[in-house]
Simulated assay, not measured.
Amino acid sequence: MIPRSLLCAALLWFGMAGVLTGCWDTKDINKRLMPVVMGICKNPDQTYRIILQIPSPEKKGSQYLESSSATINKAIDHIRSKAEKSIDLLHIRLFLICEKTAKSNINDIIDYAVQANDISIKGLLGIVRGNFEQLMYHHVQANPELSSYDFFSEQAGWTPNNTIFRLWEAYRDMKSYTQDMAIPILSKGTDTLYKFEGSAILRKDKIVGEISSDETMIYNIFQEKYTGGTIEVSDQASVLIKKATIRNQIAWAASGPQMNSHIRLNVVISENKQHEAEADISQKLKDLVEMRGRKLIGKLQEEKADSLGVGKYFRSRMTEEQLKDWKLVWFPQLKHEITADVKILNSIYLKTPGKMKNAPQRPDEQNR
């Protein structure tokens, strides 16, 4: 019979062994570098230049590491070899690709990032316009703790005039017959880190055009990513959009695909210097949204890039051959009608003199 003391010792030993083997390869957080931004650009000799931005509390800003090589993976290995700490890529939130590389091909960049085991596919994408190095190393002295990611956060600096595009979406769209990309374009800011200059339109894996910030707002409504923003209806009036929804109806006639998109906007008039009637402001906003929508559709059809993804609504009505030809043949022939319906909400929010409604009085105030 096995002595009880020996049995207890054996159980304790096996228990400790199980616990220890579960964390044998862990590293202290003080021994790790966790980049949040990766910049990628092809050099003239076709090598990849990689710049990593790493938050540095000691420097009250960021630390930068960079290297170049024939492949992205090799460039990362070069950075690791000269870093004083282990580099953990899992925390990268933003991938910035220089414009000249995006105009050529981003397929290998997206494939690398998606297939890498230590990179999150939820990372955001941006296109860098202008001097790539200057933007990557740019920081704001007055606000050193500002994060590059804040400009893409709905809880921070992001606005509906900018796109939010993730790594997994880029991988999906490169393989899709009915969806293309719209990636935000950034340039170096003056008093801020970045300046947004609209969105780049990519067909498959390279830039074929771009849309303005105003057109990007319509794009976000189509993508159901609109969270509210301000539109100037005229030089003297502006409205705050509280809610934006869209309803699409499709048909496939003898002449080809047809689509009707109806946009519903709930707005509050935030400025009205000339005391225009609500009906006039509503009509102006309706005309403005419909005009921007038609301009956006026309530009995408000209570039044969279905960044709105309208082709997905027709997938069940197309043969396999039609599906493969959607972007080059059928999307440019699409007859797309856009209409808008504007509802002005309670004008208690108005700040225009003479137009503010009186707030309801409390019972104790009414008796005074």
Rank of each mutant, 00 (worst) to 15 (best):
V114W: 00
L186D: 07
Q179K: 12
M356R: 10
I119C: 01
Q141E: 13
V140M: 14
P57D: 05
T47W: 07
Y226N: 06
V239L: 09
D88L: 09
V208E: 04
K299E: 13
I183F: 13
I29G: 02
D214T: 10
G309F: 06
R4V: 13
K204W: 00
K122S: 12
V140T: 15
E154K: 15
T26P: 00
L96K: 03
G189H: 09
E197L: 01
D306P: 00
E290N: 07
I241L: 14
S282W: 03
N117K: 08
I110S: 05
Q366I: 14
G130V: 10
R362G: 01
W158V: 06
F196D: 03
L33F: 14
A9R: 03
M318K: 04
T71C: 10
D108P: 00
M38S: 14
S69G: 13
L300S: 04
Y349F: 10
Q115Y: 05
K85H: 08
D341H: 14
S282Y: 03
M259D: 02
N30E: 15
D364V: 07
C41N: 13
P44Q: 12
R203H: 08
I246E: 12
R32I: 15
N105S: 11
A237N: 08
L334A: 11
T163A: 13
W326Q: 07
K188E: 12
D235G: 06
L167A: 02
D180Q: 09
A142G: 15
K355N: 08
Q361N: 02
A244G: 09
I281P: 05
S176C: 05
S213D: 13
I218E: 02
Y349R: 11
P57T: 07
Q223N: 13
E303C: 00
K225V: 01
P184Y: 11
V310S: 05
I218Y: 05
L52N: 11
T227I: 11
Q301D: 03
F14G: 03
P363C: 06
F95W: 05
M318H: 03
Y313G: 00
I269L: 08
A340W: 01
L328A: 08
D341W: 04
I231R: 04
H78N: 14
R172S: 05
K175C: 01
M34R: 12
E210T: 06
A142Q: 11
Q155L: 08
A340K: 02
K85M: 09
K175E: 08
A340Q: 04
R49V: 01
S261C: 04
A9M: 10
A279D: 14
I92C: 02
A253C: 03
Q46C: 04
V268R: 11
R129W: 01
I201M: 07
G61E: 09
E215N: 10
D173F: 06
L186P: 06
P35E: 05
W158K: 15
Q115P: 00
L125A: 12
K327M: 06
L146V: 15
L323M: 10
I109Y: 04
L20S: 11
L6G: 02
N272H: 12
G130D: 12
I87E: 02
S282E: 13
M318W: 03
Q134G: 10
R172P: 00
